[in-house]
Computed example of a mutant assay.
Amino acid sequence: MYKTLTASIALCLAACSATPVTQAPANDPVTLRVNVFRGASNIPIYMAMEKGYFARRGITPVMQFTPNSEQQRAGLAEGKFDIAHAAVDNAIAMIEVAKKDVVILSGGDGGMNEMLVRQDINKPSDMRGRTYVVDAPDTAYALIGRKILKDAGLVEGKDYKIDPLGGSENRFKGLDSPAGAATLLNPPWNFLAKERGAKSLGTTTALYGPYQAGGIFVMRPWAAAHASAVERYIAAYIEGCRAAQDPAQKALTLKVLSRELKLDANKAEMTYQALNDPSGSGLSKDCALDMQGFKNVLALRAEIEGQWGGKAPAPDKFLDLSYFNRALQHTLP
């Protein structure tokens, strides 16, 4: 009897000390306002909608399209929507410059960007006397371009100037004017620009290195007050990301890309290949955050914007990956 009781206690203690498996959050119906740029980076959202991953968790995402990052940052701070998908450097700018209580919850992709230029430009140093077209000059992809031009020996404001035109579609159109000599574009805009005569100087991964581009960020108090909805949203997003990366679902992914981005079959295929680029510029596995890429984001901001006395801080203050890690436990394989 004593041995049996001892064995039972031991089993209980072992079970209690094991890592607990969290229960999936209840599927209480909720509508979430999701703000994004138009582009291929939204494919995990589109696939999650297509496959019913949001619906089975009681989530109804309502997508809003932003014309530029300044409006997106302002809209998030003002509560005009709940979730932002964009280059995570925008969240850093909100935290450090605008002093807003923002937090990054997930990664997404490496940006898939190329430096596109007019035909008479053969190398970054040829931008002397020309105009670099950006979204907002002090965040994200604009900083990568400024770094590339700096490394080419050009001094901003002296050797070249910056023109903030807004999102990818506006920058794509900006290359049609003589003033717009260079910009960074990702799918499908880079393909469309090259079709209209633009030249590529290379991908930003090749020109700069790993970079955590797209991700999910929200107001921190809102996330805490809506933890269940956030976790369910991210779980569906992860599954949508997996579907977009699954070779068995390529035909469906191409169909969704064609429909949502208004692409012909050839551009949909090129976009699909960019999304699944093994170099690291496309979707990350499970759309998780690339920590080295994120450290490079901080280092770039420290160098180009001169923040933190030129020395990048630790990533922890900008991130809360606990929502992502819990969501990961409740995803379909």
Rank of each mutant, 00 (worst) to 15 (best):
K285W: 06
K3T: 10
S228Q: 12
E269K: 14
F318Q: 02
E96N: 13
M112Y: 07
K262Y: 03
A224I: 12
V62I: 09
C12I: 09
Q329F: 01
K311S: 06
P164R: 02
W308F: 13
R118D: 01
T131Q: 13
K267Y: 10
A236H: 06
A265Q: 13
G197I: 04
G240P: 07
K158V: 13
K100R: 13
V30E: 13
A193F: 02
G167V: 08
D82G: 04
R326Y: 03
V103C: 05
D176L: 10
T4N: 07
G167S: 03
Y160R: 07
A236N: 08
S168K: 04
K199E: 12
G58T: 12
A268R: 10
Y53V: 03
D320K: 01
L165N: 03
G107A: 00
R33M: 12
V102F: 11
Q71W: 10
I144C: 08
Y233Q: 07
A136P: 00
I83T: 12
Y323F: 15
Y233F: 15
L13H: 02
A86H: 14
V256Y: 01
C287Q: 09
G282I: 05
P124M: 06
P247T: 09
S228D: 15
H330A: 04
I9E: 07
G209L: 04
A224N: 14
A93V: 08
L184S: 11
F318C: 00
D320G: 01
T203V: 09
R259H: 03
E114H: 15
R146C: 00
A48R: 02
R57C: 09
G310D: 10
Y160T: 07
A24G: 03
D138Q: 10
A152L: 09
G306K: 06
K311A: 10
R38N: 14
G310M: 09
L13C: 06
M127A: 03
L201I: 03
H85V: 14
R33T: 13
M63G: 01
G107L: 04
K161D: 05
A179D: 13
G282Q: 11
S228T: 09
K161G: 07
E260C: 01
M112S: 03
G215Y: 05
R259G: 05
A74T: 12
P333T: 14
R242W: 07
K80F: 13
A18C: 08
V155E: 15
D151F: 06
A198R: 01
N170R: 15
T204N: 07
S284K: 08
I95G: 01
T203M: 05
A251C: 01
S168I: 01
K123F: 12
I144D: 05
K51V: 00
